[in-house]
Design a binder for these strands. Structure first.
Lengths: 335, 335
DNA sequence: TTGAAAGCGCTAACAC
DNA sequence: GTGTTAGCGCTTTCAA
C-alpha cells in the first residue's frame, strides 16, 4: 500500500504538503504541486479512505435504503442516485431490506457510523422511528413525508395527485365514462395519494363514474388475480396501481381473449421499463425515477454540507408525465 | 458520538476490555462481559468502522460491480449477494458502470483501498487489465474466466452449455426440427457459450436444422427489430439470446397476429422475472441468479479469509434449470 | 509556503 | 482476565 509517506519521500516534501496538495492545491506553490502530483501518479497513490474518514469525521459514503432492488421502480431510482453520487464524488451503498421494517431498522443503526447521510426510499419504518433517525443522521426521505414528527426532514416525493389527474384526464378525454381503479395496499403512502388523486380528478368531471378496488397485491400476480372481477364491474377503462398490476391484468385478459384497448383501455402507474415489454405497450404515468434518485442525492449532499435551507426547497416534488402508448384508446361504441 | 472510552467509563473497565468484549467475548469474564454489554446497550455504542478499518486493515465491505443495475439479471444477482453479505456481516457496495469499461476501470481503482474484496459481474475489462486487478485485490469474476492470464482467480459461471442443451432438448422433445437461435453481441462471453452450446446440442440430434443469427441487440427492442426476419427463416421454434430479446420477438409477433406457441414456439435465456409478465408466459432456461450472487460472495469471503483453496472449488459452475411455461408447445402439423 | 506534531477511535501486542 | 500503550494513515492546527 502506497501512503503519504511514500509520496512525500519521492517528491522531497513533508507528508503535510502531500495532503495539502491533494485537498487544497491552491495553498501550495506551483512547483511543489507539480512534483507531488507527479509522484502521486507514478506511485499510483490513493488516499486511504478509512484514515481520512477517521480524521475528518466524514466518510464520503451515502447509503440508499430500498425495500427491493429487484423492483424496477427502485432499480431505476438507484441508477439515478448512483450517477449523481459519482458526479459529486460520493460512494453509494445500496441496501435492500426485503420489505422488512426490522431489517431496515437494524441496517440504519449499523450504517450510522459509516456514512455521511442516508436516503430512505419508501421506508417501512414508523413515523416515530423515522423521526428518531432523522434527528441523529442527515437523511432524505423518498415517497414519504414527516410533517407531523419532523417537518425539517428533506423529502423527495412524486406528485401523485398530478399523476392521477393526468391519467384520469387522458381517459376522460378519450371518452371513457366508467373507470375502475385497482388500488394497492391500503398502508402504502403512494396508494393513499393515488387513490385520493384519482377520486378528486374524477369528481371534477361530469358524468364520470369511478369504482375503486383496494388492497390488490402490487405485483403482476396480484393483477392476474383480480382481472376477472375488475371486468365484471363493466368499465371501459382501468387504472392499475402500478405497472406490474396493470401487466397482470393485461396478461390475464389476453388469455381470456379480452382485447386491450378494444374492449377496455388500460393504464399503469410509474412508467417503468416493463411497459415496453408487452403487447400492446402500456400507457403509463409516472415521474422519471432517475430524476428522483438524483434529487434525493442532491438534497442530501446539501444537507450534509450544511447549505442554507432557505436557498433550496427542502421538499422536492417531482412532476410526473403521461407516456401514451397503445393500451389506451377511445371506448368501443356501446351496443 | 459514543466511543470505547464512554463505554469503558460507564462499565468501569479499560477500553481494551471493551474492544475485547466485542471482538473476543470468550476472553473476558462473564461478569465483565455483562457489564460491558449493558453499557454498550444503554449508550447505543457502535464501533466506528473507519477507526476499526484503519487499525485492522480490513473494511468489512465488499463491492459488487455490475454493468447495469436496471437489468433484471443483475438486479437479482445483487439481491442474492446482498442477502449473503448481511448474513456474513459484510456491507455491500453496489456499483453500476453503465456498461462502460472506463467507468469500471476507474471505479475499481477508487474502490481498492476501501474494500476487502471485489465481485466483477460480466466485466467489460480486457483480460490484461482484469489480470492486473486480480493480482492487487481479492476478487471474484462472474460470467467470465481468466484461464490464460490468471487462472487462480475464483469465478462463478453459469453452465451455459447445459442451459443450451436443456433448451434444445426441450424443443426437440416437443417435435421441433427447425430452430432459429437469435444470438446476442458477438463480443459477449455468454453469447459465445450459448451459441456453442446450442450448436453442439443441435448436432447431436438427428434431423434438427439450426439457423443462427448474430449480434441482435440484447434488449426487447432488439428482439422487435429482427422479429420479421426471424420468422421469414421458417422455424417452428425460436430461442432468444435472453428473456428481453424473446419478449421483443413475442411482442412484435403478437402485433402481427402470429400466435405463440401456435405458430412458433419461443424460449428465452436467464429466466428472469419478466417471463411472467407476458402472455403467454415465457418458457426460459437459466440459473437462479440469487444463487449466483450468493456463491460469488461466499467465494470472495473464502478468498479474503484465506481459506485453503483446495477444500473448496475455486471455480463454481451454477447449473441452470428449464422453466417450462406456455410459450412452447409441439409444432403445428405441417400442411 | 512549508513542516512538525497531535490526534481521530480503535485493536492487538505485551505486560501485569 | 485485564490494563497500558503504540500505532493504523491521514488531516489540520500551529509555528517557522
Amino acid at each position: 500500500m502506497v501512503t503519504v509517506h511514500d509520496v512525500a519521500a519521492r517528491s522531497g516534501v513533508s507528508i503535510a504538503t502531500v495532503s495539502r496538495t491533494l485537498r487544497e492545491p491552491h495553498r501550495v506553490s506551483d512547483d511543489t504541486r507539480d512534483r507531488v502530483l507527479a509522484a502521486v501518479d507514478e506511485l499510483g497513490y490513493r488516499p486511504n479512505r478509512a484514515a481520512s474518514s477517521l480524521r475528518r469525521g466524514r466518510t464520503g459514503v451515502i447509503a440508499l435504503v430500498v425495500p427491493d432492488i429487484e423492483n424496477p421502480y427502485f432499480a431505476s431510482m438507484t441508477k439515478g442516485a448512483q450517477v449523481m453520487c459519482r458526479e459529486r464524488g460520493y460512494e453509494l451503498v445500496v441496501v435492500d431490506t426485503s420489505e422488512r421494517a426490522e431489517i431496515e431498522d437494524e441496517e440504519v443503526r449499523v450504517l450510522r457510523s459509516q456514512i455521511d447521510g442516508l436516503i430512505l426510499a419508501s421506508s417501512r419504518l414508523s413515523d416515530e422511528r423515522l423521526a428518531e433517525v432523522a434527528e441523529t443522521t442527515s437523511c432524505v426521505l423518498v415517497n414519504r413525508s414527516l410533517e407531523s414528527h419532523a417537518p425539517g426532514t428533506p423529502t423527495v416525493t412524486i406528485d401523485e395527485g398530478a399523476a392521477a389527474a393526468l391519467a384520469v384526464a387522458h381517459l376522460y378525454g378519450l371518452g371513457h365514462r366508467r373507470i375502475v381503479y385497482v388500488g394497492g395496499p391500503s398502508r402504502s403512502w403512494s396508494q393513499a395519494r393515488r387513490a385520493k388523486g384519482i377520486e378528486t380528478a374524477a369528481h371534477e368531471r361530469d358524468g364520470l363514474e369511478l369504482i375503486q378496488l383496494r388492497d390488490c397485491v402490487p405485483t403482476s400476480d396480484g393483477g392476474r388475480e383480480v382481472a376477472e372481477k375488475v371486468l365484471a364491474l363493466g368499465p371501459t377503462a382501468v387504472i392499475g396501481y402500478n405497472d406490474l398490476v396493470a401487466l397482470g391484468l393485461l396478461a390475464q385478459w389476453t388469455e381470456s381473449d379480452i382485447r386491450v384497448p378494444g374492449h377496455v383501455s388500460l393504464i399503469g402507474f410509474d412508467d417503468t421499463f416493463v411497459t415496453g415489454l408487452v403487447t400492446p405497450p402500456l400507457t403509463s404515468v409516472g415521474a422519471d425515477l432517475r430524476v428522483v434518485g438524483d434529487a434525493a442525492v442532491e438534497l442530501l449532499i446539501e444537507r450534509i454540507d450544511g447549505v442554507s435551507t432557505s436557498s433550496h426547497l427542502i421538499h422536492r416534488s417531482i412532476q410526473p408525465q403521461l407516456a401514451v402508448r397503445s393500451s389506451t384508446a377511445p371506448p368501443a361504441a356501446r351496443r
